[in-house]
Design a protein around this nucleic acid. Structure first.
Ligand SMILES: [Mn+2]
Ligand SMILES: [Mn+2]
Ligand SMILES: [Zn+2]
Ligand SMILES: [Zn+2]
Lengths: 135, 135
DNA sequence: TAACTAAATTAGAATAATTCTAAAAGAGGA
DNA sequence: TCCTCTTTTAGAATTATTCTAATTTAGTTA
C-alpha cells in the first residue's frame, strides 16, 4: 500500500491526509494484532496519545476501522475493517482471529425481518476454547 | 419466576443465593432495557454499587448474563442471557433489540473450521437505521 | 508560490466508569 | 447454634478515555 493509496483512502472519505492518519491507518492495515490505543502509541511514539484517540475515532466514523471490546481487559481494541469479517476469540489465549468464511446475508435478512430496520453492518464475535485443553 | 427458582438458578451454578444476587438476577430477567450497572443501582438503591458490579461479574462468569459494549456510550450494558440471542442496534435511537430468529449452527461450524477451536458461545450485534429516516 | 483558514495536533488536566481495600455481615453446612 | 468462608459495603484508588485551549498544518485560493 503506497502513501498515495493511503491518502486516497482518507480523502475519498472526507478526511484530511495528515501524516498521523496515514501512519495510523497503515499501522492498522499491516498488523494483525487488534491493538489498543496505547499499544499503537508504544509503536508510534512520535504521535501523541490524544491524536491516536482522535484519529481512531475518525477512522471508526468513516467505517475503515471497528472497535472490539473484549471482555478480558477494559481497553478498546481497534481493527482495520476495510474487508468486513468476523472474529473468533480463543478464551484460553485471548487471541482474536479474523475469519470471513461465512455469508452474513441470511443473518442480515433475519435482522431486517425482526426489526424492520435497514441493516448497515455487523459485529460478530465467536468464543471458543482449545480442543486439547484439559477440561 | 419464584424466589426459589431464582435461588436454584444461582445455587446450581455454585453461587450463594444472597438477597442481592436474587434481586439483581430477577431485575435483569424482567427488564428488556439492557441496563448499565448504574441504571440498576438507580432502581435498586438498597444494594451498593460495589455489589452491583461484583454480582454482575459473577453472573457473567456463570453464563447467565452477558456484557454488551455499545459504541454509543462508554458504559457496559448487561443482559440476561439464559436464552441465547442476538442484538439489533438501531443507530438512530441506540435502542438494543433482542432477536433469535437465526440459527447459529452454520456460523459455529464455520468458526470451528476457521480456527480449530471448540466453539462455546457468541455475541452478535447487527446495526441498522430506520428506513424512513431522511438520508 | 504565498497567503489564508478551517481542521488537526498536542500536552496536560479533567472526567468518570470500574476496581480495589479491608472491615462488617451473612449463607450454608456441621 | 456455631463456624468459616464468602459476600457485602463505603469510600478510596485507578486508569482508560475525553476535554481544553494553544499551536500547527493541509488543502485551497489568488
Ligand atoms: Mn466500552
Ligand atoms: Mn473507563
Ligand atoms: Zn479483525
Ligand atoms: Zn438481549
Amino acid at each position: 500500500m503506497t502513501d498515495q493509496n493511503l491518502r486516497d483512502m482518507l480523502q475519498t472519505r472526507g478526511l484530511k491526509a495528515t501524516f498521523q492518519r496515514i501512519t495510523i491507518l497503515d499501522y492498522l492495515m499491516t498488523h494483525e494484532t487488534h491493538p489498543t490505543a496505547d499499544m499503537i502509541h508504544l509503536d508510534l511514539k512520535e504521535i501523541s496519545l490524544a491524536t491516536i484517540y482522535n484519529t481512531l475515532e475518525k477512522l471508526v466514523d468513516v467505517g475503515l476501522v471497528i472497535v472490539i471490546d473484549t471482555q478480558k481487559d477494559d481497553k478498546r481494541h481497534y481493527d482495520y475493517y476495510g474487508e468486513p469479517h468476523y472474529h473468533i476469540i480463543n478464551n484460553n489465549t485471548n487471541e482474536i482471529i479474523d475469519a470471513d468464511n461465512f455469508d452474513v446475508a441470511p443473518l442480515f435478512e433475519a435482522a431486517r425481518q425482526a426489526s424492520g430496520l435497514n441493516i448497515t453492518g455487523f459485529h460478530i464475535e465467536i468464543y471458543g476454547v482449545d480442543p486439547d485443553e484439559a477440561k
